[in-house]
Design a binder for these strands. Structure first.
Lengths: 197, 197
DNA sequence: CACCAGAAGCAAATATCTGTGCTTACGATG
DNA sequence: CATCGTAAGCACAGATATTTGCTTCTGGTG
């Protein structure tokens, strides 16, 4: 009769499932095989029933956004170095190190992929962006609190953040060791040129 | 008996189909509704049988890449202004104008989306990138031919191209009118600082 | 003008993704 | 230690996407 032996049914706790699914997303994005990312594939990779994924996250976008947010918060301690330049440099060093690994590039890719194309989403979009820039904002706030005069967000975005994103997207390694310092130097030297209003 | 009246079956030439499908891709990407892009939807929008799309392009990635390449080549005349600064400025102005429209942002988004994750694709990836940077390379070559000393590709990428991409991705409008000139100025002023080897 | 290669359209089959109702395990609470 | 809410797993159903075999039109060639 081979009873169904229901005890064989292994089940993991919600937290374990969450972690396994997040890891599966990163794994699949990092993988050489460029199969397209979808929920069934992620679930299988994570060893989780796909219905669990559908019920918890609902859509691939939501899952990607959650994965990105969780990972970035986990991996970006963002400790205070005492100066604006130090903080920016630390951020850049971490980013440079990050996009050298397939996993790190995958994360950036995920950020882009999870960006809602939709545009009724103008607000959702902005919120998404805000969250992504939170660490930069914090650096600016700390600098201001110290009495330093940080460059506007736009400039940091253009000259520090953008170069890392574009490299991650196109799969280009950052040029050399001094790269982060170079970017920070340029950013800060600019600021003095372009006077505030 | 209402014969099938086979003459009612309208058919377009391959070129017409190609153009209609490209336009449908752009239309759907620009549209406020953020429904996800897929081949059946594109085919329907283009008024083309979906099997035609499958047979001609095979995958959504390939279709996106083809669309992007065709459009960019069509819309980027890249005329010679006589100076390096002028050419760079023209490029930047065109880019700034481009990403102000939903269609333009959609195009950039398509570039990113069509970027092969795949990586057997390391070569394919590089080729994709090369094609995207072709206009920049041409600007550099012309400058060199004139006896000017253009900044290395890396720097142009970081300080001129990257800012436009990141803005398109996150849906941020370029700040102000003088923006392109500002970016070009910064790029060129840098070049003198960082001496050549 | 007849013929032929190439490609578009149609229909139907197959594969894959997405969602639902239900059962069952886990962990918290009293 | 009994109870209960939450969420995971299973089976199955519905919706979509992808592929295939075939027919029919188009445009070029001799």
């Amino acid at each position: 009769m081979t009873q169904k032996q229901p005890s064989a049914r292994i089940r993991r706790s919600p937290d374990q499932v969450r972690a396994a699914v997040h890891q599966a997303v990163i794994d699949l994005l990092s993988e050489p095989e460029g199969e397209d990312l979808n929920i069934p594939a992620i679930a299988q990779r994570a060893g989780v029933n796909h219905t669990s994924v559908y019920r918890r996250w609902g859509s691939l976008d939501a899952l990607l956004a959650d994965t990105v947010t969780t990972r970035l918060e986990r991996d970006s301690p963002l400790n205070d170095t005492g100066t604006l330049r130090g903080d920016l440099l630390a951020w850049a060093e971490a980013s440079a190190a990050g996009i050298r690994t397939p996993e790190g590039r995958a994360l950036v890719r995920a950020v882009v992929l999870s960006m809602p194309n939709s545009a009724q989403a103008q607000s959702e979009r902005a919120q998404h962006f805000q969250r992504r820039m939170r660490s930069i904002e914090q650096i600016r706030e700390r600098a201001t609190a110290r009495g330093e005069n940080p460059p506007p967000l736009d400039q940091i975005l253009d000259h520090l953040v953008a170069p890392f994103y574009i490299r991650a997207i196109f799969g280009i390694d950052p040029p050399a060791d001094g790269y982060p310092a170079l970017l920070v130097d340029r950013l800060l030297s600019h600021r003095s040129e372009a006077g505030p209003a």
